[in-house]
Nucleic acid binder design. Structure first.
Length: 227
DNA sequence: ACCGTCAAGTGGCAGG
DNA sequence: CCTGCCACTTGACGGT
C-alpha cells in the first residue's frame, strides 16, 4: 500500500483502515510537482544563462563557493533551485531506492551535473520530508481514533449509569392474576434463587425502567463479546 | 511583512 | 578514526 501525494511524496503507513491517498495538504510550490501550477523558475538556473561554456557544478560548486566567500563575506551562496528535470530524475531514483550507494550517488551526480554532496543532501531532505508526512498522517489517524474512543467511552458511561439506576430502584412485580404491580408487602424472596416473587404464583419481574430488552438486574446475562 | 518550502550547514551517534 | 545518516537549524526565495 503506497501512495503518491500531490507533492510527490510516496507515503506508506502501517495504520489499519487508513487510506493514505488523502494526504493532500502538501502546500506551496514544490518543484517536484509535475506540470502543476508553479511556473516559477521554469528556466534551469543551473544551466549557463546564455550559451556560455558549461559549468560542471553550477550552483555552489567548489570554485563558485570560494568566489562567493571572497566577495560577499560570510553570506551563503545563492540558493540552488533544482531544475524540473533534475527533480524528476532524483524523484525517480528515490522511488527505486531511498538510499544511495556511493557509486549510485556519484553516477547520479554526474548525470545531473551536481556535486555528490548535493545529491546526498537531496536524498536526506527527501527522506526527512517523507517521514514528516508520514508522522502527520499518523497524527491524524490517532486523532480520529481518539475521537471515536471518546465517543464510545461516553456511550459506555451512559450505559453504566443506566444499569446502576436499575439496580438501585426496587423491582416492579406484577400480579400473575391482575397483571398489576403488587405492593412491596406482598413480595417474598425465593430462597433458592433469591429472586423476588409475588407471595403466590410464579415470579413476574420487570425492571423498573422501560428498557425491556435490557438484561435483568437479577440473573444477568453474561457479558457479551460486544463489551 | 509574513509564511511555507527547500537546499544546505552543523553536531551527534552508530556501525565498521 | 572514518563514514554515513539523522535531527535540528539556517538562510534564500517565492507566493500571498
Amino acid at each position: 500500500m503506497g501512495a503518491t501525494s500531490p507533492s510527490g511524496l510516496e507515503l506508506t503507513m502501517a495504520v489499519p483502515g487508513l487510506s493514505s491517498s488523502s494526504g493532500s495538504e502538501g502546500a506551496g510550490c514544490n518543484n517536484n510537482n509535475r506540470g502543476g501550477g508553479c511556473n516559477m523558475r521554469d528556466l534551469d538556473i543551473n544551466q549557463p544563462a546564455s550559451g556560455g561554456e558549461e559549468e560542471e557544478f553550477p550552483m555552489g560548486s567548489v570554485e563558485e563557493d570560494e568566489e562567493e566567500r571572497g566577495v560577499g563575506g560570510p553570506h551563503r551562496p545563492k540558493k540552488l533551485r533544482l531544475s524540473k528535470e533534475q527533480s524528476r530524475l532524483l524523484e525517480e531514483s528515490f522511488r527505486l531506492n531511498h538510499t544511495l550507494t556511493p557509486k549510485q550517488k556519484e553516477a547520479l551526480a554526474i548525470k545531473l551535473k551536481l556535486r555528490p554532496r548535493q545529491v546526498e543532501v537531496w536524498f536526506q531532505n527527501r527522506r526527512a520530508r517523507t517521514k514528516l508526512k508520514q508522522t502527520e498522517m499518523e497524527c491524524e489517524y490517532l486523532k480520529r481514533c481518539f475521537g471515536s474512543l471518546t465517543e464510545e467511552n461516553r456511550r459506555l458511561q451512559r450505559e453504566v449509569e443506566e444499569l446502576r439506576a436499575m439496580r438501585v430502584a426496587p423491582p416492579t412485580v406484577l400480579s400473575p392474576h391482575t397483571r398489576q404491580p403488587l405492593p412491596a408487602s406482598a413480595l417474598t424472596m425465593c430462597p433458592r434463587c433469591e429472586r423476588i416473587t409475588a407471595a403466590t404464583g410464579p415470579p413476574t419481574v420487570r425492571p423498573p425502567s422501560s428498557a425491556a430488552a435490557a438484561p435483568s438486574p437479577f440473573h444477568p446475562r453474561r457479558p457479551s463479546a460486544a463489551f
